[in-house]
Amino acid sequence: MSTTVVHEIPTTPEVARANAFKRTVLAVGVQNLSLILAIAVLVVAIGSQNSAFFLTSNLKTIGTAVTISGLLALVQTVVIIMGGIDLAVGSIAGLASVTSAMIFTSAGSSASFFGALAIGAVCGLVSGCIVVFGRVTPMIATLAGLIAFKGVAQLVSNGRAQGYTGADPFYVFLARGSIIGIPTLIWVLVLMALLIHFVLRYTRVGRNIYAVGGNDTAARLSGININRYILGVFILAGTVAALAGILITARTGSGQPVSGSEGLEFQSITAAALGGVALRGGKGSIGGTILAVILLGVLLNGMSLLGVNPFWQNVAQGTLLVAAVIIQQLRNGERRVGLPK
């Protein structure tokens, strides 16, 4: 989405080239270009240290590793564009993971798939209702969800991993199958990214989500039912988080109440912020988030390939998050007085 259009007609080849360059930069966006640049630098740096990085098997490893956090980053992007935030997505994924395995044990794979999605949707609806009808800010409402949904997952499972899905063809296909040589997990992420990108960019619903996040009063006075959008987006976030939870079950072969999903909410926010989604709403795109997901995936993969102490991974992610937001705020021209908005 460019912000300016070049009017002047190029007179010389140099000017034409310069304009073409300018147009490309504007079309891709400064934010996305810097992400691509960062990924390129990382790839060169890691690849020069360890050539195993470029193996197809390692690229698949990166792809499958980022799927789960990537799914959450996609819906987090939608929530943040709408002006909210959802800290509960990780806990919802955990709850969906453990319940999917439990439903599987008693009722089979398709019941477990749709049952877990439904549980995720209900969790999202609860968050949304607390925000809309309880007038609680999304930050606090979903912080409560983060804690409480985790508790529910531990309660129903007694805190232990549940069931065994490792022999079920559907779950095996999800975890290790592939279509035309590309792992199913990567397909899930790519299809979901394309779907959400399409909705945000080309549909009325998507455009209204930007409007609600950009200025909710203006959206309301223009006839948009903003409560319906807030509820809908939180339900979407819960449902997609549940899908991520089902993938956790598939990958580990059993339902995990906490391990496998803990901390994913923060990774998803990091990816969205890094991808250029404005934390005050109204601005951002799925393309940026996906680039950020790839950047984080490459970084973490490279760190483990190079034998860096894994505890550094959290430090690196925290640093990236702060750096991304500082850059965002500086570009907004924030005055350095008082608490930032």
């Binding site: 989405m1 549909t203 009325r204 455009r207 209204n208 930007y210 409007a211 950009g214 200025n215 009063t217 203006a218 959206a219 006075l221 223009s222 006839g223 948009i224 404005a278 109204g282 601005k283």
Partner: peptide, 24 residues
């Protein structure tokens, strides 16, 4: 600015805001 316009979106988006249904 506070109640009518979405300042971070384009002129086009702001003009079309109330008629997106008819354009879809």
């Amino acid at each position: 600015k506070a109640d009518a316009l979405i300042m971070v979106r384009s002129v086009r988006d702001n003009i079309a805001l109330a008629v997106l249904g008819g354009l879809s």
